[in-house]
Lab assay of single mutants.
Amino acid sequence: IEEVKKIVSEIQSKQLTRITINGNTYQVNSPEELVEYVRKVFS
């Protein structure tokens, strides 16, 4: 979970619009959307 928080804060600070998780690239339009992807991947 700490690793996830680190990734999320990194993305928020860079305002990235794409994230790659487990080889899948997602278009991310908002931090909320990012959190949803993270929940799916780590749930």
Rank of each mutant, 00 (worst) to 15 (best):
I1A: 13
I1M: 12
I1S: 13
I1V: 11
I1L: 14
I1F: 13
I1K: 10
I1D: 13
I1T: 12
E2S: 10
E2I: 13
E2A: 10
E2P: 07
E2H: 08
E2L: 10
E3S: 11
E3N: 11
E3F: 15
E3M: 14
E3L: 15
E3W: 15
V4P: 04
V4N: 03
V4K: 03
V4H: 06
V4T: 04
V4C: 15
V4F: 15
K5D: 15
K5R: 12
K5Y: 13
K6E: 07
K6G: 05
K6L: 10
K6Q: 10
K6C: 12
I7P: 01
I7Q: 03
I7R: 02
I7S: 01
I7K: 03
I7N: 02
I7E: 02
I7F: 07
V8R: 03
V8A: 05
V8C: 08
V8H: 02
V8S: 01
V8Y: 05
V8E: 04
S9Q: 15
S9F: 14
S9T: 11
S9V: 09
S9W: 14
S9N: 12
S9D: 13
S9K: 14
S9C: 12
S9H: 13
S9G: 09
E10R: 15
E10I: 13
E10T: 07
E10K: 06
E10H: 09
E10C: 14
I11D: 01
I11Q: 01
I11E: 01
I11S: 01
I11L: 03
I11R: 03
Q12D: 03
Q12P: 02
Q12I: 15
Q12H: 11
Q12F: 15
S13I: 12
S13H: 13
S13F: 10
S13L: 12
S13A: 12
K14V: 04
K14P: 04
K14N: 08
K14D: 02
Q15L: 10
Q15D: 02
Q15P: 03
Q15W: 07
Q15K: 12
L16A: 02
L16E: 02
L16F: 06
L16G: 07
T17N: 05
T17M: 06
T17W: 06
T17H: 05
T17R: 06
T17F: 10
R18F: 08
R18N: 06
R18I: 10
R18A: 12
R18T: 10
I19P: 05
I19A: 01
I19T: 01
I19H: 00
I19R: 00
T20A: 05
T20P: 01
T20K: 05
T20V: 10
T20Y: 07
T20C: 11
I21P: 00
I21V: 05
I21K: 01
I21T: 00
I21M: 03
I21G: 00
I21A: 01
I21C: 11
N22V: 03
N22E: 04
N22R: 10
N22G: 09
N22W: 12
N22P: 01
N22L: 08
N22D: 08
G23A: 02
G23C: 08
G23Y: 02
G23M: 03
G23S: 03
G23V: 02
G23Q: 03
N24P: 00
N24Q: 13
N24E: 11
N24H: 13
N24R: 14
N24W: 12
N24T: 15
N24I: 15
N24C: 15
T25W: 07
T25I: 10
T25K: 04
T25F: 09
T25P: 04
T25R: 04
Y26M: 07
Y26D: 03
Y26N: 00
Y26R: 01
Y26K: 04
Y26P: 00
Q27W: 09
Q27T: 11
Q27R: 07
Q27M: 09
Q27G: 04
V28L: 14
V28I: 07
V28G: 15
N29C: 12
N29D: 12
N29V: 06
N29I: 05
N29H: 08
N29K: 08
N29Q: 09
S30T: 12
S30P: 10
S30I: 05
S30D: 05
P31Q: 02
P31W: 15
P31I: 08
P31K: 02
P31G: 01
P31T: 08
P31C: 10
E32K: 05
E32A: 11
E32V: 04
E32T: 06
E32M: 07
E32L: 06
E32I: 04
E33W: 07
E33K: 04
E33R: 03
E33M: 07
E33D: 07
E33T: 03
L34R: 00
L34S: 00
L34E: 00
L34G: 00
L34D: 00
L34Y: 03
V35D: 01
V35C: 08
V35A: 09
V35Y: 04
V35R: 02
V35F: 06
V35I: 14
E36W: 08
E36G: 04
E36V: 08
E36A: 09
E36T: 04
E36M: 08
E36P: 00
Y37I: 15
Y37T: 11
Y37M: 15
Y37D: 00
V38M: 10
V38I: 14
V38H: 01
V38R: 00
V38D: 00
V38A: 02
V38Q: 01
V38Y: 03
V38G: 02
V38P: 00
R39L: 15
R39S: 06
R39M: 14
R39V: 09
R39G: 03
R39A: 04
R39F: 11
K40C: 15
K40Q: 11
K40W: 14
K40F: 12
K40R: 11
K40Y: 12
V41A: 12
V41Q: 06
V41G: 03
V41I: 14
F42D: 00
F42L: 11
F42H: 02
F42T: 01
F42K: 00
F42E: 01
F42M: 09
S43R: 08
S43I: 10
S43T: 09
S43L: 14
S43M: 13
S43V: 07
S43K: 10
